[in-house]
Design a protein around this nucleic acid. Sequence first.
RNA 1: GCGGGGGUUGCCGAGUGGAAAAGGCGCAGGGCUUAAGACCCUGUCCCGUAGGGGUCCGCGGGUUCAAAUCCCGCCCCCCGCACCA
Length: 906
Amino acid sequence: MFKEIEEKWQKAWENARIFEAEPNERQKFFITIPYPYLNGNLHAGHTRTFTIGDAYARYMRMKGYNVLFPLGFHVTGTPIIGLAELIAKRDQRTLEVYTKFHDVPMGDLIGLTTPERIVEYFAKEALNALKRIGYSIDWRRSFTTMDPPYQKFIEWQFWKLKELGYIEKGSHPVRYCPNDQNPVEDHDLLMGEEASIVEFTVIKFRLENSDLIFPCATLRPETIFGVTNIWLKPTNYLIAKVDGEKWVVSKEAFEKLKFMDRDLEFVKEVDGREFIGKRVMVPLVNRLVPILPAEFVDTDNATGVVMSVPAHAPYDYVALRDLNAKIEPIVIISSGNKDVPAKEVVEELKVKDQNDPELEKATKMLYKKEYHTGIMLENTGKFAGMKVSEAKDKVEKELKELKLADVFYEFSEKPVVCRCGTKCVVKLVEDQWFLRYSDEHWKAKVLEHLERMRIIPEYYKEEFRNKIEWLKDKACARRKGLGTKIPWDKEWLIESLSDSTIYMCYYILAKFINSGELKAENITKEFLDYVLLDKGSLELAKSSGLSKETIEKIKGEFQYWYPVDLRSSGKDLVANHLLFYLFHHVALFSEKHLPKAIAVNGYVSLEGQKMSKSKGPLLTMKKALEIYGADVTRLYILHSAEYDSDADWKSREIEGLASNLERFYSLVSDHYSRDPEKITTLDRWLISRFNRAVKEVREAMDKLQTRRAVNYAFFEIMNDVRWYLRRGGKNLSLILDDWIKLLAPFAPHICEELWHLKHSTFVSLESYPEYDPSKIDEHAEKAELYIAKLLEDIKEVMKFVEKPKVVYIHPAEEWKCKAFEIANEKGIGEAMKWLSMQNIDKAEIANFSKKFRSAELIKDEKKIIEENIEFFERELQIKVSLDSSKIPVERKRLAMPGKPAIFVSS
RNA sequence: GCGGGGGUUGCCGAGUGGAAAAGGCGCAGGGCUUAAGACCCUGUCCCGUAGGGGUCCGCGGGUUCAAAUCCCGCCCCCCGCACCA
């Protein structure tokens, strides 16, 4: 454990303010990671994303960039309020999760009954952990999203978006608890977390000679051409006035309609059976069809009234079969079927009656098949020949335009139950504010900018393209939670994914805010227009009440630092935050201030188990630091997985790493100050190998491949160092300065400590080792490989000798090397020609030429062996001799360039 | 279903046309040690009494002198499909 060392250098860095970035003449590099949301302690997932960011920040700093690496805290939204309520209620499960997994002492926890206290508590905890892990963050720029200046900033942002026409009103369906009178999120649910909101099309069938409407709910409006009848369950229904029309709906449907922004009025209860046998008009098709009874109708699904398309809906087909009704299915879609499609699938699955559970499967099979491969037949009028997927949308659109259809929202799975025990409903929230992400021009601009960006890993660019196209309008206002009010409509709060899209530029303001130079009241529209957008003028910006100098200074710093050069984030934010980040920047900022690069990393699981903030298991950053310390934790998480692949935190592995790091520490302390001795081939080998590693590490880090980087910077070099010492190397200190620097971005504390054994500067500010191709020594590398291979071969041979006494080694004769050299330069033909002119036994030549492939030319083989004979003897614990006279001829013959003959006597 | 990623030796994972398998973890043996831990070495697909031979990268085909790598077909796994941070 390196606790003292780590804390010592954390203090030293803080006192020397080395991570506080100010504009200067150097090239800047602005790196950000998403600020954490403070409804709990930071965990291993944060540890991964943040450590990648910090390692890169440190790397870039050592490469000579002026690096800005700031971090704030996100507190807007509902979860913090939800948590405060749960704690106030003494919710058992919450108390358990937070004491057990978030490592919050019960005594502290029960006091956290207001959002303010939660924010205060977890902000402090987060800051402690983030400092204890030694991130090179400029803490002068920290803030939370509830700070008044931040809110002023967000208000400005929303005014701007509104002016651009990117915000407008609309309505939106949400999952809603009628008891709590609130939208519910996944973690508010007792049951039905997987349920999504499905949009049913309700087609209005008018009763013959009446103004009663039977609203049939369907997911397949295109099948309207095949309707032969409609279904009612033989039970009670209600007649209700819905937006002026008289609808017949189930009781459950009536309850649901109350939440769908309708003009709704109860008329009377009726027995569904009354209508059986009467006829309704199929809209668009204008055909009269009968109303029939069916048990399979679920009154708790949508309207409880269903249209019947026996040719394409297995339920309808079977229900008619059960009734023995003389009704012929009308086939309107072709998908390679020979007979009536519903009949085919029903017979294939041997469905017995309408209560057979197989029907669900049959329905899904047929739906899938027809949706993807089906073509509309001639009897569908102008939709004939269209693909089903296309016709579906067109029919629906037309019906809606003719006021013959409506929308009804329903859950995909049921029941959906709130934690309060109430059954949830779909509520249509009206007058909701939307961000118009579907805007084609906006999208086009984002896509265009994406092409200029660097996305890491590269294949995520395609993912981003797809997600940008898929993105729809997003409700950006909430009734409940923490946040900034929509400036022109104070009833609403700005939703938390929408108030965190361009805050990276706020880090530049935050420094001035925290120093007291800039106050909330100074942050006026004109000020931000001028500073961030270079619009308006200095004169107008004086509305902020700030001096000209201050305004220009802030603006200058913004122009120096912006844009963000790299945003490094977990992959869970790709489909939301990172998209919004791009959209908002593109909408507001000029091209030169748009994001340059995005990097994405994967999740962290614990011993194979998914982590969960709200349920556990969870490993907090704090706990990891207590057990393993900063450098071990950092090195481990950086090495555990690459890019977006998920990491699995295994305590066994991190313990192994801890001992590796200790070994590094003692190894370096032992050798660092030793006086240099004469440089040998072995030393040149070490330097050569080290240089290759430097190249790898730099290439890896330039692509944010921290796993590969740590692998080379730490493990591979460690292996070479072990071999070097085993071979009797004396000058390890030759590489130690550079090795410490090479590792500094990953394990900064230990490196700082070791560095100071010899230096008085901060290694964190030293320049990163450069790859020097002139230090690559091919000969030395070949020689070491030769020795290793020879050692291995001798051991292999010794295995087969019972009591080995002496190992005789015989390198290939001069003529073999010469012939091989000729073969390499001029081809085998020339070599053979040359060989035939030498005075050498023909059989020898034939034997030798067969084995050309296994040879490799190495200079001075004999000399290499001679110089290392002691090493071989030490390793093998046996006498080693170059006296070839003791070797039998048939063994001697095996000697090839690079592969000496070996004979072990017993 | 759509979109993105993936299937390599006990496990995690490198490796994208030239003798497959870096590195980590685990396991086994040996060394060191009073002992344990740490540390060092060796082995870890199969066969082999001389450094060797064989098998092998989800499955099945194909291209090539040469395929984990390229092409075609198939199977399986993970993630996203939202309004939630």
